[in-house]
């Protein structure tokens, strides 16, 4: 079978990926698979998804294509080609465009919940509430995160997923404690 991407080389990597309930079959050669981030262990066809997302969500060429990260020099146009960002600041520079893209890639999720770097958290406590904000976000963001967790908790309880519910309760308690400790 020939590679479905380049149509030249023999397809040696065959994968089925299910995304949003749709099963996608891929037959690729080594080179095209590497380009798509496929093949090898633990790698999902993310770049390909990103490319699709970027094209469909981020809209046409004009708007923002010339946007450049002042820290690493990556342009948004280049990001559209590779699906890869250049540094932490890229997330701020391109935030407006990345927001909807990330939301779609993560099935509607908009905010991080879960682990916060423990060392940074310790260090920020000494720096006071301003430093803590760089890890936990503004009070509005913190409130949003808590209400997202409470919604997840309610549906876990309704579905009788008690282990999940317990871990969500722990997470809410952890954030509450951070609020009190950091204020």
């Amino acid at each position: 079978m020939k590679c479905s991407e380049c149509g030249e080389r023999e397809a040696t990597i065959h994968e089925t990926v299910i995304i949003n309930g749709k099963s996608i079959e891929k037959h690729l050669c080594e080179d095209c698979a590497a380009k798509a981030g496929l093949g090898g262990q633990g790698h999902l066809p993310m770049h390909e998804l990103v490319a699709t997302f970027v094209k469909s969500v981020a809209g046409s060429e004009g708007a923002g294509a010339a946007l450049t990260c002042s820290v690493c020099g990556l342009t948004y146009a280049r990001f559209k080609q590779t699906g890869l960002l250049g540094c932490a600041s890229c997330y701020r520079t391109f935030e407006e465009k990345l927001g909807p893209l990330i939301e779609r890639a993560h099935e509607g999720a908009t905010h991080h919940v879960g682990k916060i770097p423990r060392g940074a958290l310790e260090r920020s406590r000494q720096g006071g509430p301003d430093r803590l904000e760089t890890l936990l976000g503004s009070s509005k963001e913190r409130e949003e995160r808590l209400s997202a967790l409470r919604r997840q908790l309610a549906s876990a309880v309704a579905a009788e997923h008690y282990e999940q519910a317990a871990s969500l309760r722990d997470e809410i308690r952890k954030l509450d404690e951070l609020e009190r400790g950091g204020a």
Binding site: G37, L44, M46, H47, L49, V50, G83, L84, L85, A88, Y91, R92, L98, L101, I102, A105, H106, A109, T110, H111, H112, V113, G114, K115, I116, P117, A120, E133, T134, L135, L136, G137, S138, E141
Partner: peptide, 17 residues
């Protein structure tokens, strides 16, 4: 790390945890 996106990764499909 960012409060909104969590651990920042080269590919935005890996952000969060």
């Amino acid at each position: 790390f960012s409060p909104r996106f969590g651990y920042l990764t080269a590919c935005p499909t890996n952000v969060g945890t």
